[in-house]
Amino acid sequence: NYIVPNISVPVSYVALLAGSSVTLRCVLNEVGNPKATIKWTFAGSVITNNSLFLITEGSTRLNITSITTSYSGAYHCNASNVAGASVATINVDVQEPPYFIVTPPHNVSVRYDNAITLNCSSGGVPLPNITWFKDGIVIPTDQYTSSNTSDTLITMLTVVGSLTSLGYFTCQAVNDLVERRVISTTVNVTVFEPLSYAGIDPSSSITLNQSDTFTADCSFSGLPLPVVSWYFLNKFLSNIGRVTITTDTQDITVTSTLRIRNVKKSTDEGVYHCIGIQASTYNFVTIAVKLVIL
């Protein structure tokens, strides 16, 4: 009498990383009459021994060496004879750790109030998730765009030059595999603005009476922030005696206010120079204010 064979698999799903090796196994519960022939198939083709596949133990074992994502899918173990056939399936999920396709440069400089776009794209199987961080703090997803193709996740983060933009932006790609893998790349964003005088156009001269208080404001803008100093008769002025100098910083503008109490014609009349210096660039701007005392 003819007997139909019966075959099964102890495990119907296998997940592994690309580059790994795996052995698929099927169990012949009923050999059938006549004895069944066992074949393995993948993607509609019968598998034969080669550099990737090795069939052993009466065809009940399929060894796969250094598997790639191209060989993800359903593997069928087929037992058949003239009486009929039995098929068991093992789904193999070949996963690939995330990898970067496009990354931003490690250092980027943007002018104040201008914008740059940081591009970060990653591949992997399954497609990774990308998260952006600013100085270790997660950036909300609505602040950057994401799109994907079949094998690439693309993100674009727009950064507008400001004081809050200074620092480190990190693109992190993660996919949850049989082993969780995380990769990241970081870009240091610096913001610059050339030094410029930002105050009201200074008067060519200020006229005061003796014993009045002389007040002059001097403002410079720039990034790095400028250092503002006052000079009189080529001498550096500081907070001594009747002289008071205060500094106020608003965003990228530094304002220095010079006050001299109880001015005297004999010692205080003349031209005062306010100098703004951007140390990192060695740029400087000088503003002159003339004090006339009656």
Rank of each mutant, 00 (worst) to 15 (best):
I137C: 08
Q250E: 13
C26D: 03
S221N: 12
E96C: 14
H273P: 15
I277D: 09
S70R: 13
Y144D: 01
S109R: 10
A43N: 15
R180P: 15
V271F: 01
V125E: 08
V243Q: 05
Q95W: 01
F169T: 00
G73C: 07
T185R: 02
T267G: 08
I47H: 04
V94P: 12
T23H: 04
I260L: 07
P97E: 00
S86K: 10
A18G: 15
T190G: 10
L24I: 13
I116Q: 09
L118I: 03
Q143F: 13
G222F: 03
T131Y: 08
L233S: 14
N50G: 12
L118M: 10
S184F: 12
S8V: 15
P128E: 01
V27D: 12
S109W: 02
I67W: 11
Y112R: 08
G136I: 00
T186N: 05
I47A: 06
D248H: 15
Q210I: 12
T48P: 05
F232H: 10
S147I: 06
T103A: 11
D217V: 11
F214G: 08
C120I: 04
Y99T: 13
L62R: 06
T37A: 11
V228I: 15
I245N: 06
I154N: 13
G44I: 09
V289S: 06
N49A: 10
S72Q: 09
R180I: 15
T255N: 08
S205P: 05
Y71D: 10
T152N: 04
K35W: 00
P202G: 01
D212F: 09
G73W: 01
L291K: 05
F192E: 03
N1R: 11
P128R: 00
L223S: 03
D135M: 04
S12V: 13
S280L: 15
T286F: 02
Q172M: 14
N209Q: 13
L223A: 07
K235E: 09
A115K: 14
I3Q: 11
S109Q: 12
A88L: 14
A15I: 05
P202A: 01
T207M: 03
L177D: 09
Y272L: 09
C274M: 12
V108I: 12
K35L: 08
S266V: 11
T190Y: 03
L54S: 15
V254H: 08
I137Q: 14
N119V: 14
N29E: 14
V160F: 07
D151W: 09
Y112L: 09
P104G: 01
L223M: 10
N234P: 13
Q250S: 15
